[in-house]
């Protein structure tokens, strides 16, 4: 789909440039005669091809309805889309936007909690205990 979109965009741009150049040359040469039909057709066709290319190469649409969108996030989780940062971390798709409230891990659970109130000492103790136990799952 991406290749098709790029091809459409390239072809459309070439035709559009050609049509614009032709009409500019035509008006320079014959300032008082109407634009020939082939230039008009080329202009319209190029714009249609270009629009099709832009639509084809656009990213996939997200669900408009909130519940569907939320459901998609919950079902699929965050997954990579094939892009990495310079540090080698994959850029993931959009996740649960309310995760920062830290409400999905129960009361006093073993989740990460809220970022601003992160319990560094507790987490450090948890890790030390895990290492002492032999560092297994």
């Amino acid at each position: 789909m991406a290749i098709l979109g790029t091809a459409f965009n390239a072809v459309g741009l070439i035709f559009l440039t050609h049509a614009v150049y032709s009409s500019s040359e035509h008006t320079a040469a014959f300032p008082h005669s109407p634009l020939p039909l082939d230039i008009t057709i080329e202009l319209i066709v190029s714009i249609l091809v270009l629009s099709a290319g832009i639509v084809a190469s656009s990213p996939q649409l997200k669900p408009i309805r909130w519940a569907k969108w939320g459901g998609k996030v919950a079902r699929e989780g965050q997954r990579g889309e094939g892009r990495w940062t310079r540090e080698g971390e994959e850029i993931l798709s959009e996740g649960d936007g309310f995760a920062f409230l830290g409400l999905d891990n129960g009361i006093g659970g073993d989740g990460e909690g809220r970022r601003g109130f992160w319990d560094v000492r507790g987490k450090r103790k948890e890790y030390t205990a895990w290492v002492k136990k032999g560092g297994e799952n």
Binding site: E87, L92, G95, E126, Y127, W130, G135, N137
Partner: peptide, 12 residues
Amino acid sequence: NLLTPPSRIPPQ
């Protein structure tokens, strides 16, 4: 993943 760490991080 360091960019978007998971919501639950076990020791490993």
